[in-house]
Design a protein around this nucleic acid. Structure first.
Lengths: 139, 139
DNA sequence: CGCCCGCACCGGCGTTTTGCCGGTCGGACC
DNA sequence: GGTCCGACCGGCAAAACGCCGGTGCGGGCG
């Protein structure tokens, strides 16, 4: 983690979709060296992913779904299906009476209800409890 | 802003550096149509930029606490107390059989148990169910 | 009805970027 | 000296990108 790494990181913070060529130019390194550094930052866990900065977040509607799987089903099979639903922004598999906690967001409650229906319809999902978020005190 | 746009957005939230070709495949559109949609999302200000998810997430232990308040208590009184606990990273008040969903993170399970105890001890909190996160599939 | 316009989409082109790999240089160590 | 190792460079084939002309379809309008 030297100055070049820190500079690379800060360039990516500003625009994570820039090409390696452009990043390399700003870093004063060759493209392939930049590529290696980026790979190491990811492997070492300094960078875990890249995401979107959303505009003027008009607070969107949020809900939590607590999901119980049918006996003998594992999340590995179901999670990929859940991921394809656009409203889903968070998926955690948990230990206990519940198997999955999913957070969904949308523009009003209709998309949430729709997402809930889509998830409930997936084969292997036994039960879905919905909790509409009334207020975001944190996160 | 239709379903395709929303799906595109959610794909980018998960990995903002994916190629347009890969995004187009998941969207079921041609690459150039995907490119146009992305451009419009940016022009219209829905997407203002792309950034790095940093390794503050050297995957720490996470749990969700589902909290029921004592009859007659309101979250407004209790949430400030909950906020003072450092392990707490997310607080949502929700409608239904549960009143609060709290996400806690810490370095191993011990801090989580400690946070749970601290929350359970707050006057006005009737019941706390703990769900340790086994796997982060998203978020 | 027929026409035209706007919009979203497709496909193809030349160019740029990427993934990959062999090769060079300098420092540490025996 | 010799060797190993890490960081870097450069080049090639393959993939992705930017751009633009062309198509299909629904909506206004004479």
């Amino acid at each position: 983690m030297d100055d070049k790494d820190r500079l690379l990181l800060s360039l990516l913070r500003r625009d994570a979709r820039r090409s390696l060529v452009a990043l390399a130019r700003d870093l004063g390194l060759s493209r392939s060296a930049t590529q290696e550094r980026l790979a190491k930052l990811q492997d070492s866990g300094v960078i875990t992913g890249f995401t979107v900065v959303e505009g003027a977040a008009e607070r969107r509607s949020t809900a939590h779904l607590l999901i119980r799987l049918a006996p003998g089903r594992h999340c590995a099979q179901l999670v990929p299906r859940v991921k394809t639903i656009p409203a889903v922004v968070q998926i955690h598999s948990v230990a206990g009476a519940i198997d999955l906690i999913v957070r969904v967001e949308g523009d009003g409650v209709a998309p949430l209800e729709q997402a809930r229906a889509a998830i409930a319809a997936i084969d292997g999902i036994a039960e879905v409890s919905t909790f509409i978020v009334l207020d975001h005190h944190l996160g």
